[in-house]
Nucleic acid binder design. Structure first.
Lengths: 131, 131
DNA sequence: ATACGTGCAAAATGTTTGCGGCTCA
DNA sequence: TGAGCCGCAAACATTTTGCACGTAT
């Protein structure tokens, strides 16, 4: 086995880290985590790996509107969720609503669009911050 | 009357241009348009004006996921729409669905969120490009 | 030896900030 | 004269690209 660096080391490390996360992560966070883990990786490799993984459909790009692109692993069964962002504390929650999916699919269908992806981001104050 | 430059010249010009547009516009496009119109405006003023207008709730930030923030005038009656983006030709269409609004409101409510804003972006191939 | 993943550093892009100048009150 | 808008240019943050190096085939 490869005692040193195998060819796709970074890609594997990126995926592994991504899947260990419960939610979306930015390239910078990924970089810091991998570096912290003793791995000598460059930020460019993170972006390159993410780019390829996204193209392969293994990860999804998530844009929460704060000018930082985040990524999350794609679930094999095509299942996915959307995000609720608290403007006050910055917390990000996930949600999933079949009704929403259906509604969006209907809209796309009505317009004759072949839907490849859809992003939904809800922003406001979370239950805790409203207190 | 102000034969020369009044104090809020840029803000007014920005709003005027924004409202003349049928859909969202980027800061750069706004800049080009105003420059093309003979106005000697700086890109910074565009951003400053947009920032203030957004804070006042007169314009909405729209993020279509291409790392360019776009803006569109806020309709006084609180009405708003979302966007369909064609990955092939880049066309942006608008849509509006009461059912969608209702669904999103319900999701936020269930989670105890006080919703301030929500963004929905659908991406895929438009009817023309599917041909 | 060749192919290609990789790290580093520089470039590119979009946005923000600092500053001096000018307009208006 | 004082306050604040404005354009210019520099600063910034994030992401992309160029290039030399090293490992595996």
């Amino acid at each position: 086995m490869e005692a040193t660096a195998p060819r796709w080391a970074d890609h594997v490390a990126v995926i592994a880290h991504l899947e260990a996360q419960d939610c979306c992560v930015s390239a910078q966070e990924l970089f810091d985590s991998l570096r912290g883990g003793g791995r000598k990786v460059g930020i460019a490799s993170i972006y390159r790996a993410l780019d390829q993984l996204a193209e392969l459909g293994l990860v999804h790009r998530v844009d929460l509107g704060d000018s930082v692109t985040r990524f999350e692993p794609a679930l094999p069964d095509g299942e996915h969720h959307h995000h609720l962002v608290c403007d006050d504390c910055g917390r990000v929650e996930m949600f999933d609503d079949p009704n929403l999916e259906h509604t969006l699919a209907r809209v796309a269908d009505t317009r004759g669009y072949d839907l490849a992806q859809h992003d939904v981001v809800l922003r406001g104050s979370c239950a805790d911050c409203r207190a």
